[in-house]
Structures are given as structure tokens and as C-alpha cells.
Design a protein around this nucleic acid. Structure first.
Lengths: 181, 181
DNA sequence: ACCTGAACACCGTTCAAGT
DNA sequence: ACCTGAACACCGTTCAAGT
């Protein structure tokens, strides 16, 4: 089926570029890695990247999408844990991702694509967090707690502490929520 | 007194560069503003900036220092407010500063100077926050609450919400702390 | 001591040209 | 459709030269 082969190859080349970018972005940081460096790691020329992505920011979004999808998949296995354990898991799972968080916050102001991804990410994180809170919690309180949880997780990711401190911060946070009921 | 005149002029020129950089960094963002643009706003050549600062990051640090010093000065007038009101004031005072917060987090990974400033900032913010918590609060709890407060304030600064939502988030946060006693 | 203009190495991006 | 090499406009930074 020749109709299938081309799209397939295109998809593979695209994934090679994304996975090269992913490794380098996580290792050295978005602004530190040139498209030329990514291209050579993916076995193409830097201009070739523009055949697959409109610009560097859209390549970043593609990387964010795969990273998020993988984490989201693992999140599903956590159903039986309580809130504190889930939050500890998230900070551990996304450890070493602090650079990407900073980059998203930074590029969002210059790139529509990154800004949109960021907005979508937060609505998703919000919905996921909301589901962890007691169903009978008043909406206003729940929304505030969601924001606080998100901010604390982002803070933990971007400021890295040792696991014990992180655990203590999360416990304190969760106790405040539980006690509010 | 000719011994005084030169240092004075040097100080003035330096301040002109810093204040030009400050305006532009806040308006358009650090990475969006070239040294050439700052230089022309300050009435010099871009290479002249290197006579006063070793690189662009050190100019950023100089801007951060004056902005922080001014905010710190105003902070002193708040002695009689309670914690929630102080936090609301901080988020309002530093409104429009979100860009700088993102930039610091971003550049800290590439610049020793920015990283050091960031560390100092957090020890200072920590000490200031600690002083707002009840003196009889156990150290571990107090440290955790300090981190949570800092993360929430940073989150509010970098994700801007309308004042009412910010107020509600801060109230919820402070209630959790008060109830923990 | 202070400031400049020219130059350097690099960057993301564009484009005409190839297959 | 896909990929390239050459070129563009810009960037932070360096440096030899001026005052």
C-alpha cells in the first residue's frame, strides 16, 4: 500500500527530530541548544526542521506534548494513592523537568503556540487536581486549593529541594486542605 | 573637590543605563531587548555598557537590585497589616514583575550572577516570611509554610489572575496556616 | 578612565535550487 | 514532497583605537 508508506516515513523523521530535541532540551535547556545541534543529532540539516515545524517554539510544543502524554499515562496507575502521595509522585516523576517549566513560562510571552499549550496544561492540571479534592468542597475553596497545589508543585519542580523537604512541604500543604473541611 | 567628581559621574552614567534597562526589561522582557536598544535609550553605544557591566546578566542583576530595594523600602510601611493583607499587597506591588521572575528563573541556570541573586533573594524572602508566622510554631512547620507562601506568591505573579481570585487564593492559603496552629 | 566602530562567532529563519 | 547550502538580519561580546 504505497499510500501508507510516505506518511509513515514522515512521521518517523518527525519523531526523530522531536526525540533528539527532547534529550537536548532536558540536558542543556531550550535556549542553550541550537537548531543546528538538534538537527545534527537527528541526522538532518537545520533547515530541514522547518519542513516539519514552523519554528523552534513549535518544536518545543511537540516535545512538551510527548513528555506530558507519557507522564499522564503513568498518572493513571496511581488511582489508589492519597493526595499527598500523588503529589510526591508528581514532583519525583517530573524531577529534572524544572528547566522545561521555566522555559514554558518564559517562551509563553513570545510564542502563541507555547502560550496555548501552557493554558491547556493548566486547565488539565486543574481538572485533575479538582478530582482529588472532596466532592462536597465549595467551588470557591476548591478552585483556590487547586491553584495553591499547582503553584507549590511548580515551585518544587523549579527550585529543587531534597526529597525529605519536598515531602514535608507537601504534607503541610495537604494538612491545610484537609483541615479546611 | 575633583576627587569626587569622577566617581559621581560614573555613578550617574551607570544609573542611566540601569534605569533604561529596567524600563525596557519590564516593558518587553529581558530576552526581547537587545543591548543596542538599551544603549541607545541611555545615550551610549552598546559596547559602552561593557565598561560598566561584565555582561547582560550582570546588568539584569543591577536592575533586580534597584527594583528589590524599592519594594523592600515600601514593605516597611506595612508593619500593622496581617499576613493575608501583606501578601495581597506584595502581589499587587510586584504586579507586572512576573516577566522578571520568569527571567530570573530562566537565566539562573546559565549565569552564576543571576543564580547568586536568586539564592539571596529566597533567603531574604524566607526570613521576612518567617517573621510573619507565629513565634511558637515548630521550625519544620514554619519552614514548610514559608516555602508554600513563596511558591504561591511566585505563582500569582507569573500567572496573573484578577485581584478577586488572587485575594481568594491568599485567604485560603492563610486560613490553612492559621488552622494548623 | 572612558567610549567608540569594526569585527567575530553564533543564532533562528528564509529562500532559491536541487531531487 | 522533501531536503539542502547559501544568505539574511540580528545577537552578545571582544578588541584595537581613539580621547
Amino acid at each position: 500500500m504505497p499510500r501508507n508508506r510516505r506518511p509513515r516515513q514522515r512521521e518517523e523523521k518527525r519523531e526523530e527530530i522531536v526525540s533528539a530535541a527532547r534529550i537536548l532540551f532536558l540536558e542543556r535547556g531550550y535556549e542553550e541548544v541550537s537548531l543546528a545541534r538538534i538537527a545534527s543529532a537527528a541526522g538532518v540539516t537545520s533547515t530541514t526542521i522547518y519542513w516539519y515545524f514552523t519554528d523552534k517554539d513549535e518544536l518545543l510544543v511537540a516535545v512538551l506534548d510527548v513528555v506530558l502524554a507519557e507522564s499522564l499515562q503513568r498518572w493513571t496507575d496511581l488511582a489508589e494513592l492519597d493526595l499527598a502521595d500523588k503529589l510526591v509522585w508528581v514532583t519525583a516523576e517530573l524531577k529534572g523537568m524544572g528547566r522545561l517549566v521555566d522555559t514554558v513560562h518564559n517562551r509563553r510571552l513570545s510564542s502563541r503556540a507555547v502560550d496555548t499549550w501552557h493554558e491547556n496544561f493548566h486547565s488539565m492540571a486543574d481538572a485533575l487536581t479538582r478530582a482529588e479534592l472532596p466532592a462536597d468542597m465549595p467551588t470557591t475553596d476548591a478552585e483556590a486549593h487547586c491553584q495553591i497545589i499547582t503553584f507549590v508543585v511548580e515551585g518544587l519542580l523549579t527550585h529543587d529541594h531534597d526529597p525529605a523537604t519536598a515531602r514535608s512541604i507537601i504534607d503541610t500543604l495537604v494538612q491545610g486542605i484537609v483541615r479546611s473541611q
